[in-house]
Design a protein around this nucleic acid. Structure first.
Lengths: 339, 339
DNA sequence: CTGTTAGCGCATTCAT
DNA sequence: ATGAATGCGCTAACAG
């Protein structure tokens, strides 16, 4: 079986404490002694037992990551950001995704508890507080895109500002009846984006017709289905702003099927800037969500927390307007959309 | 701080051994004793220390997962499959992705070593053997889409059969000069798909012109760039089969830019069936890679291995032809492509 | 600079 | 059915 510290000590003719010292890079070891120990390790193919180390030090070097079942790109980008930071700092990631309900997420958190030094949780439901109650008060935790009450460090997109900017942009194309395709009720991002849309309408003195707010659930299919309601509106809106790209894509399919041309007959915009947005026909104008930054920054904060530093309770990452064909702007040349 | 087993024992007026027994569901405990212990646990908010448990039992209940930096959908689907199986069996996932070179992957494996009960590794480079040499012989491991030598359990797609089937299908549309856009050299999937293409050409008695094999690297941009070489071919091919969807999409952009209509002027097909394939214009005909199955099955095998069962050394998952517009087949109605 | 020793929290014989 | 004692492999005082 695997060699232990004791065997190394014996072979090197020193005590386990000394072996432990060279293992942890203490300088209180004679060069020649260190050499003997190193040789013994090499000869025995020694690998320290991480578990024993953890038990002894109380530090796992593992961060728990809890992500909801957002599809594909989103999930991948965020965790990529987290991982990149984690790796450079020597942390491992205990990842768990695809959580439908709060109970399930709570269970995962509980089973992770003894195993992690900190937690990064993405919990887009509005009632985030209940979740954090499950976590021991001394366990560092960072929330992603959650309703921030300031009690728990949170990183999020500037959904509201982004949505307002896109709404204003659509208006700048001359549109006065701009419909909004909502995300699922109770979802943090969805509500914020809706609020941004409303802000802009108010600011622009455009009529805030509740009928302009269409129901959706962030999935493509709901965008496709919303087209019927959209086209039934009187007078018919000249622009549609979907709370995310997936729904915008679904709507695009529905519109095309009914012979409504985008952007000629109807302007269309989404939110997130998932990869297909740039190469669809027409290219989809959208608001870019800095997903990778979200993950990176969250990990950055958590590391600061672990280091005992004070941090900003709430960080808001800027979004960015990506103007392409679907809103009526000129197309972006293909070779520029391929980096 | 957190209560320990000793405190629970003390409060319940029993020994730690008894507490341990009720913890592990032993039946050698009097009902009334068990009740007292349970009450003590409840009162103390006791949570067993996982690390101590691991040290004592030698079992971590954690599976290490090493994925390359495949983009988005692919990565997400595979890990989703893995996770789903893992969760039902009470395993956690220590995930690490984005590995450019072998050295980096080796480092990650080494640092995971003491922390996991088993490993799932996706290593699409052809020289997989060198990697497995880093792993202790007694650590269960399953490889994903790797060159299988039978020595290490491997799960993979039937790339070759799928590619051959698509090539035959393109031929069935009447095409005789079918170009192939290759993936990166040395990549397992890329080589297999190329082999399938060649198989079919041979079988169909079509000329195997090496000039028909275009260079690519699995990224969209390389598909875009390949269009120039494609259109320069004499005589010009009437069909293009890309080794993955991303490149097919890139090629589509390039073709469109040059006024070449798909499928009228040129038939196009990809491989993988990433989501955009079904809603692009034209819809992309492709070969579906069962990504989620790949993850699920790998985890399934690993669990069997952990249970001491014997398993098939090599599992090949079937791929499936998804025929849509870009190859010349009739379009699939939008509402059917939205599940 | 190095060795001795006492935990870390739990599972698990071996007794009783 | 329950308890006492031992060990998992390592770190961290404390001595020397």
């Amino acid at each position: 079986m695997a060699a232990t510290i004791r065997q190394v000590a014996e072979r090197a003719g020193v005590s386990v404490a000394t072996v432990s010292r060279v293992l942890n890079g203490s300088d209180r070891v004679l060069a020649i002694t260190r050499k003997r120990v190193l040789e013994a390790m090499e000869a025995l193919q020694y690998l320290p037992n991480e578990t024993a180390r953890i038990l002894s030090t109380g530090k796992t070097n593992v961060i728990g990551v809890l992500l909801p079942d957002l599809h594909g790109e989103f999930y991948a980008k965020v965790s990529q950001g987290i991982e990149r930071m984690a790796r450079t700092e020597g942390y491992h990631l205990l990842v768990s995704s695809s959580h439908s309900d709060e109970a399930e997420a709570g269970t995962m958190i509980r089973t992770m508890l003894g195993r992690v030094d900190g937690l990064i949780v993405m919990w887009p439901r509005l009632e985030a507080a209940s979740l954090t109650a499950l976590v021991p008060p001394d366990l560092p935790i960072v929330l992603l895109n959650a309703a921030a009450d300031g009690a728990v460090p949170t990183v999020r997109f500037d959904n509201q500002t982004g949505a307002a900017a896109m709404t204003r942009h659509l208006a700048s194309h001359g549109h006065r009846r701009i419909a909004f395709l909502k995300g699922p009720a109770g979802n943090y991002d969805a509500e914020e984006r809706l609020a941004g849309y409303r802000d802009a309408l108010r600011e622009l003195d455009l009529p805030a017709d509740p009928a302009l707010e269409l129901d959706g659930n962030f999935l493509r299919e709901s965008g496709y289905r919303a087209v019927e309601a959209l086209l039934a509106l009187e007078p018919r809106p000249t622009a549609l702003f979907a709370a995310n790209d997936s729904m915008a894509i679904g709507a695009l399919l529905g519109l095309r099927e009914r012979g409504v041309r985008v952007p000629d007959d109807l302007a269309l915009a989404g939110f997130d800037d998932i990869p297909p947005a740039q190469y669809l026909i027409p290219q989809l104008s959208t608001v870019r969500s800095p997903m990778q930054d979200l993950g990176e920054h969250a990990m950055h904060l958590l590391l600061a927390l672990l280091g005992g530093d004070d941090i900003e309770p709430i960080t808001t990452l800027p979004t960015r307007l990506m103007l392409r064909e679907s809103c009526g702007c000129p197309p972006v040349p293909a070779h520029l959309s391929l980096e």
